[in-house]
Nucleic acid binder design. Structure first.
Lengths: 337, 337
DNA sequence: CTGTTAGCGCGTTCAC
DNA sequence: GTGAACGCGCTAACAG
C-alpha cells in the first residue's frame, strides 16, 4: 500500500493472513481464549511491521464513545488553572480517559450553531469558573445533552458541582485579622461576576459586621498587578486608611504590595495584606503572603471523579473542598498611629 | 426519537421532509444553486428545532480530517505555556481549526503502543519545549506520519521549527551587565536537558570570556523558587561571591531574590539579578526584574501558522523569534567592596 | 477457535 | 433540484 495513507485493520488482516475481526480482537487486547496465541502473535507482528494504529475516528463512530473529556476554563494564562488540568488529567489517565482543554470562546467569536467550542468528540465536560453572565445561554443550551460537571461556579440547579469553601476561607482570614486587632478593613475585590467572588465579599462583610468598631471599604479591580495596584492605592490614599488590605486573589495582593511600597508603607508593620488561592507567587513575594490555600489540583481531580461517576450512571453528590488559612509574614497587629 | 440519543441527519431529513443528502448540503453551507432556498430554510429550521449537530466522529471518518491540532507541552503548571496556547488558539480559530492541549506523558506512564498520547483524532502536532532525551524515541517514532512542528526545541533535522533567539537574548543581558561594570558572574542555571538552556549557558560563557578579568560560576537547580534559592545561596556563600546572578528563568530569579534577602544583600545595590522569559512574576517582584522578554504567545501563533502551512502542503521556513532585553530595577553597577 | 456480515452517521457521487 | 446508494475503518453479533 502507498506510504501516504496509514494502514488499516484490513491491511493488517491481509498481512497476517487472518480476518479483520481477528485483528480487532487482538488489537483490542481481549483475545483471551478466543484466538490462538500463535495467531495473536502473528497479528501483533504484522501490525508492528506495518506501523498500524487503529483509526480513532472510526473507533469513536462505532463505539459511540471517545473516552475523552473536555475541560473548559476561562483562560490558561492565569496561574490557577494549570494545576486544575493536572489534577483532572491524573484521575482521567488512571481510568483510561484523556483530557483536552479549551478556553471559553472569546467575546467576539460568535459560536456557530449551538456550542461550537469543541471540534472534538467528547464524552463529557468539566466547566470551570463560569461567569454568571454565561449561565443562561451556555450552561443550559450549550451543554445540551453532554454530561457535565461545573467547577468553582457555585451551587447549580441540576448539574453536579465541585466548589471551594471560599466563604469559610474568607471568614478564617477575617477572624485571623480581627484577632490581631485590626478594625479598619479594606477589600480589594475582583471585578468579575463570578460566584466565588460574591461569596468572598459576603463572608468578609459578615465577619466585619460583628467586629466591634469594625469598618469595611471596598475597591474593585481586574485580576492583574497594575489594576490591583491602582485600586489598593485608592484605598491607601484615604484619611481613614485601612490597616489591612484583604485581596481577592494573590495577584491582587502583589499589586497591593506595590501600592504600599509606593506610599512608603512597610508590610506587615504598617500595613497587613492578605491574598487568596496560594499560587506560586505567594511565596515569591517578600514578605511571603498570608493567604488561603485553594486546592486547585484537587478541584480538577474531584471534578473528574464526579464526571466519571456521572458517565458511569451514578449521580455524584455535590463536593466542597475546604480552603486552608496559611499564615505567613504579611500579617501582623495594626500599627499604633 | 428518545431524548437520550442525539438526533442524526436522518432525523432532520425526516422532520424536514427531504433526504439526507439535502440536509448534508444545507448544513455544509454549500447549497448555492443546488437546493431551493425554501427547502434550505426548512432544513435549517428543522435542525434548529431538533437541536441537531453533526456527529464529529462520523464527519471525521468520512472526511479523513478533523481540523484540530494537538499542542503538547511539558506542563501547564509553569506560567510560560498558557500564552503559548493562547497564541496558537488565536491563529487556529481564525482558520477554522481547533486546538487541544496535552502534556507530555509522565515518567511512569508507559505509552501503550506507538504514541499513545492523544486519544484524539488530530491533523497535526505542535510540540513545545521537548527535552533532548525524548528526541530519539518520540520525535521520530512517535509522530510517525503526523505532520508536526517543534517549538522551542532547537534546530531539528527535517521537522519545521519555531525557536526563540535565546542566545542573542542572553548575550544582550551579559553585555548590559558588563557595561555596568560587572566582572564576577554567577549563573543560576536550570538543570533541564533542553536546547534552550544549553544555548543560554553557551551564550553567557561566550560573552564572559571576552570580558577583561571576567569570571563565571555556575550552579544548577530545578525551575522552582525553593530549589533556586538553594542554588543561589550556594553561589552567594562563596568568598569570591558574584556581583550578579544571571538566572535562566524568572522563577529562578525569584529564588535568587530570597537568597539575597536571606544574606542581607540589597538588590540592586549590593547584588544584581537578571531573569529570563518575562512572565507575570517579573513585575510583581520588588524591585522589578531585569529580564529578557520571550514572546510566548507569538511562539504559539507562529508555530500554528507554520503547521497550517505544512498541512496545506507548503514547507514552512524555520522561524526564530527574537528576545528583547527589558531593563528594570534589579540591575545596577556593582557594589564597591 | 475463526470468518462473514452488518451498521455506526456522515458526505458524495450518480441517476432521476 | 432532489433522492438513493455507497463507503470511510472499525467492532459486535452471529455462523461455521
Amino acid at each position: 500500500m502507498p506510504a501516504t495513507s496509514r494502514p488499516t485493520s484490513k491491511d493488517v488482516a491481509q498481512e497476517a493472513g487472518v480476518s479483520q475481526s481477528t485483528v480487532s480482537l487482538v488489537m483490542g487486547g481481549k483475545w483471551a481464549g478466543r484466538v490462538s496465541p500463535a495467531t495473536a502473535r502473528g497479528v501483533q507482528e504484522a501490525a508492528e511491521r506495518l506501523g498500524y494504529r487503529p483509526n480513532p475516528a472510526a473507533r469513536n463512530l462505532r463505539l459511540g464513545t471517545t473516552r475523552t473529556v473536555l475541560l473548559m476554563v476561562p483562560t490558561l494564562t492565569a496561574p490557577f488553572f494549570g494545576p486544575v488540568y493536572t489534577g483532572a488529567a491524573r484521575v482521567a489517565t488512571s481510568h483510561g480517559f484523556g483530557v483536552v482543554v479549551s478556553t471559553w470562546p472569546g467575546e467576539g467569536a460568535a459560536p456557530e450553531g449551538p456550542f461550537a467550542a469543541p471540534h472534538e468528540t467528547i464524552d463529557g465536560i468539566l466547566a470551570s469558573s463560569l461567569e454568571a453572565a454565561r449561565f443562561g445561554d451556555e450552561a443550559l443550551a450549550g451543554f445540551a445533552g453532554t454530561p457535565a460537571v461545573m467547577l468553582d461556579s457555585g451551587p447549580q440547579g441540576d448539574v453536579p458541582t465541585v466548589d471551594f469553601g471560599v466563604a469559610d476561607g474568607m471568614r478564617a482570614i477575617a477572624r485571623h485579622l480581627a484577632a490581631l486587632g485590626h478594625r479598619r478593613f479594606g477589600h480589594v475585590a475582583a471585578g468579575l461576576d463570578q460566584w466565588t467572588f460574591h461569596a468572598r465579599a459576603q463572608a468578609l462583610a459578615d465577619v466585619v459586621r460583628d467586629v466591634p468598631g469594625g469598618s469595611l471599604l471596598r475597591e474593585r479591580c481586574e485580576i492583574d498587578v497594575a489594576s490591583a495596584k491602582d485600586a489598593a492605592g485608592r484605598l491607601l490614599a484615604r484619611r481613614d486608611r485601612p490597616s489591612v488590605l484583604v485581596c481577592d486573589d494573590d495577584l491582587i495582593a502583589a499589586g497591593a504590595y506595590k501600592a504600599a511600597r509606593a506610599r512608603g508603607l512597610a508590610i506587615p508593620d504598617e500595613l497587613s495584606v492578605t491574598g487568596f488561592d496560594d499560587v506560586l507567587l505567594a511565596t515569591a513575594l517578600e514578605p511571603e503572603l498570608t493567604t488561603v490555600r485553594l486546592p486547585a489540583e484537587e478541584l480538577g481531580a474531584q471534578g473528574m471523579t464526579a464526571l466519571l461517576e456521572l458517565l458511569a450512571g451514578t449521580r455524584p453528590h455535590p463536593r466542597v473542598l475546604p480552603g486552608r488559612l496559611v499564615v505567613r509574614g504579611s500579617t501582623a497587629p495594626p500599627h499604633q498611629a
